[in-house]
């Protein structure tokens, strides 16, 4: 009797502790980094880098205003929303072009021979190198930014999609054909689902690049956006503003990655090793 009543009582704190540990573990490193930052600034006495506390104040003002009341006070939502539009605009365009193109390259020999070498040649060119040309093509403004984000997200998506199509287990084709599945239904019922894990890998990578490239994209002379804020902060020597922009981009990228991971886990419930 005692043993029975004791067991759940013992398990409850253990379960609670493991839940706490699960939430606590990922924030340990950020806390340590902020602490190290604080200590280093204080020890060196530098005036070039603000203390974490000052960046916190800047972030507060950036979000709610009421402290500095300058051009950046209470403007976070404007910049954030502009950047989100550009990141997702470029990202969705990259997915829209990259996935079908990757499927074609992976599936059709002629398309592969025709396009793949060109892609491999364009891929090593850094996106920043496209900056001047994109400004000529699209003018000063958001379209140039979207184009750069598109370029950055496009390559991982198209390459991973191609890889996914090409690495479908040959036995699955044999199994499908003996069960009477051929032609276009083979593509829909075997190739596409089998390539989904790779496609999602590409989307996740491409999405990461999209957030990376938003800063470069918004160097194209747009007045608003998180990248533009960072460029302004640099020009004005406002390091607290620069770091604030960096933190917001980091958090935005993190949370929008979680969304992709959640969709991924839902669609790929069949494949536990592809759960992120």
């Amino acid at each position: 009797m005692e043993a029975v009543s004791e067991a759940p009582a013992k398990r409850a704190p253990a379960a609670r502790w493991s839940a706490i540990k699960r939430w606590l573990t990922p924030v340990l490193v950020p806390i340590a980094l902020v602490a190290a930052w604080d200590i280093c600034v204080r020890l060196t006495g530098t005036r070039l880098i603000p203390l974490p506390r000052d960046v916190g104040i800047m972030l507060y003002d950036f979000t709610f205003g009421g402290i500095y009341d300058d051009a950046f006070s209470k403007t976070i939502h404007i910049h954030f929303w502009k950047s989100v539009q550009r990141v997702y605009g470029g990202f969705f365009a990259a997915a829209l072009v990259g996935i079908p193109l990757g499927l074609l390259i992976g599936r059709i020999r002629f398309i592969r021979d025709l396009i793949d070498p060109t892609l491999q040649m364009l891929r090593p060119v850094p996106v920043t190198a496209w900056l001047p040309l994109s400004m000529i093509f699209f003018g000063l403004g958001p379209n140039a930014a979207i184009f750069l984000v598109f370029l950055g997200a496009f390559f991982p998506i198209v390459l991973n999609t191609t890889f996914g199509v090409r690495s479908v287990d040959h036995k699955l084709f044999e199994a499908a054909s003996m069960l009477g599945c051929n032609g276009s239904s083979l593509f829909r019922q075997v190739v596409l689902p089998a390539a989904t894990p790779s496609i999602f890998n590409g989307l996740r990578l491409g999405h990461g690049f999209a957030w990376i490239l938003i800063v470069v994209g918004e160097m194209t002379g747009v007045p608003q956006g998180l990248g533009a804020v960072i460029m302004d902060g640099r020009t004005l020597s406002r390091t607290d503003l620069v770091i604030s922009g960096m933190i917001v981009i980091g958090l935005a990228g993190f949370f929008s990655d979680r969304i992709i991971v959640a969709i991924n886990n839902r669609l790929l419930a069949w494949s536990p090793q592809h759960h992120a």
Binding site: D169, K171, L172, E174, A175, A176, S177, M178, L179, G180, V190, P193, A194, T196, W270, S271
Partner: peptide
């Protein structure tokens, strides 16, 4: 000349469609 439903192969490594129940 080609695979067909009247001849069903059972592979050593199963070759099930992992995305189907």
């Amino acid at each position: 000349t080609a695979p067909g439903p009247e001849r069903g192969m059972v592979f050593q490594d199963f070759a099930l469609f992992p995305w189907l129940t």
